[in-house]
């Protein structure tokens, strides 16, 4: 297997999704690594660092990787 295709497999299989959380009170947003079984609109245990109110998952995404292949 060529080096280029092995790099492709490594990049494609090891994605690092991000969960964007939003405070339900002050709408403060923060990003942290995605945790298993999280989904958009799910209430999470994290507290808002500004007002200590509950937060929910506003979006889940990955940062675009530079296309090398």
């Amino acid at each position: 297997m060529s080096e280029r295709i092995s790099v492709f497999f490594e990049q494609a299989l090891n994605i690092k999704p991000i969960s964007q959380l939003e405070c339900i009170q002050c709408k403060h947003k923060l990003e942290r690594p995605y945790k298993e079984k999280e989904y958009v609109n799910k209430a999470v245990d994290d507290k808002c660092p500004k007002c200590q109110s509950p937060m929910y998952v506003k979006a889940i995404y990955v940062y675009p990787q530079p296309k090398q292949f």
């Binding site: 994605i15 999704p17 079984k37 989904y39 609109n41």
Partner: peptide, 26 residues
């Protein structure tokens, strides 16, 4: 590239329509 999305259960680009509705629910 779509495989990890299904194994990790994270949204895919095609999910933008349902994501708009989910945002409107909120």
């Amino acid at each position: 590239r779509a495989l990890p999305a299904t194994t990790l259960e994270v949204p895919i680009g095609d999910g933008i329509g349902p994501m708009v509705i989910a945002r409107m629910y909120k």
